[in-house]
Amino acid sequence: MRLAKSESVILTLLAARADAYGLELVEASRGRLKRGGIYVTLGRMEEKGLVSSRAGDNGRRLYKPTALGERALLAARIFAGQVPIKHLT
């Protein structure tokens, strides 16, 4: 599975925290994610099974990576040479 750049950024940010709202991810991304576009990306990632969501406060959704999402991120990092291949087990 190939990850788009924004998907990779979202999974990286989600991997560093338990759950997060979309707006929190935008703020943590330092300009790499945009407010108007993140929910389309998150919706697409949820359809692919890379993230899951649950209802949070006031109807907003909290997102977290699935096991598939974590493995896809790891594979993408290995492919980019950021992580040694022995981690993919």
């Binding site: 709202y21 979309g22 407010r35 576009g37 929910y39 919706g43 006031n58 109807g59 907003r60 959704r61």
Partner: peptide, 8 residues
Amino acid sequence: ALDETLLD
């Protein structure tokens, strides 16, 4: 996307 942006 619209709903979540409005909620934000």
